[in-house]
Nucleic acid binder design. Structure first.
Lengths: 208, 208
DNA sequence: CAGCATACTAAACACATGTTCAGTCGATGG
DNA sequence: CCATCGACTGAACATGTGTTTAGTATGCTG
């Protein structure tokens, strides 16, 4: 009843197809990727892709679920304190560190959010919940002020972080440095920390 | 030599096709929109679409150029001070106010940026330049501190604003309020202003 | 061993796609 | 008025699409 290779798992052709599909979907957008391209990248026949996932749409949701599972795992680890998060509370950076270099998952997330896909919204919700939990913890320890509108405050901080993932290329273009690379991340973190500490209007918190 | 109707312009079929294409592209993504859908939405034959734009790709770039022109116009007016920008310096809000309600341009911009399209990068650059100019003006008048890394600071502020456009739906989902609607915008602006004034760590700028 | 289910392929199918083509209509200009 | 040019259509075309089908090989189960 079980899959033949479900025990010694992720080398199965099914998983290979899913992974190649993830890469192609992230790079070109799901609509302009053909079943034949995926099959060729995975070294199998087009028929097998349909055999395993029922349809191209089925493959898409399998990829969605896989990506969601990866994020859920990371969020769970982050909330349990299992991730180091030493870099100024940036989950975006932490994410990149815990993904294989060159992973297509950030690119795919970008596509999910851009298209307003339901799977993307779910991940966004989860991210927001994790951010809210982190905020509460910081507030409880007196390390952060809750603000008048804690939900909005959490959203703002979260979104400033998420942006690094979503607009990485465009930011790299105007700044001349990859904001998620070594140098860029340091510059970004320093400046953001300065704003979070002193605001925008004075270097040492001059009141107006 | 000139187009027959190029004088009393934007009611020409060519413009109608371009506008319907913009709407469909923004809603579904260019790849999953067919020439026949566009033709049908514009009330013309598929052949005419190609007749006017050469190819579907030609139509895409015509839409890109049109969107870029709209943005350029707005940036020019903003830099000249012709836009009121009374709402806490949010260009996203100003943009929405100067666009017909329900315009597809924000949605199309989202697609351009998240797909990494060159046209999107161009608009992003222009936006950044406008933000940098606004920042400089504020700094010159002593209304804002330049920070240690002015480029990064400008990018951060700009990106926090741009987010409202790009993640509007997701933010509305987690906040329960459209952050670009009347109530949501007020809440958002108030909280962001608080952060920009006092930072994240204290309501009245308590140093650590 | 037989029986069976599963992974897998090659070829075909039905259909939707972007594009072309031949031709009609209507206006404009000499 | 006639010739020409551009807007425009309906039907066709070539191709690429997702999917189906028939069939082979292989390993598991009784």
């Amino acid at each position: 009843m079980l899959n033949m290779r479900s025990a010694h798992d992720d080398r199965t052709a099914r998983a290979v197809i899913r992974d190649r599909a993830l890469e192609l979907f992230a790079a070109q957008g799901p609509d302009s990727v053909t079943v034949r391209q995926i099959a060729s990248a995975a070294g199998v026949s087009p028929g097998l892709v349909i055999h395993h996932f029922g349809s191209k749409e089925g493959l898409r949701s399998a990829v969605d679920e896989h990506v969601a599972a990866v994020f859920d795992g990371l969020f769970a680890r982050a909330e349990a304190g299992g991730l180091d998060m030493s870099d100024g509370g940036s989950f975006a950076e932490t994410l990149l560190e815990n993904l294989p270099p060159g992973s297509s998952i950030p690119g795919y997330l970008r596509r999910l959010l851009l298209a307003g896909d339901a799977a993307g919204t779910t991940i966004f919700r989860r991210w927001f919940a994790a951010g809210a939990a982190a905020t509460e913890a910081l507030v409880a320890r007196g390390l952060m002020a809750p603000g008048r509108d804690p939900a909005v405050r959490t959203a703002f901080v979260m979104v400033g972080d998420l942006m690094l993932l979503l607009l990485r290329d465009q930011l790299a273009d105007v700044l001349g440095v990859d904001p998620l690379g070594a140098e860029g991340a340091a510059r970004w973190a320093e400046e953001v920390l300065d704003i979070y500490r002193n605001g925008l209007f004075g270097t040492e918190g001059e009141p107006s």
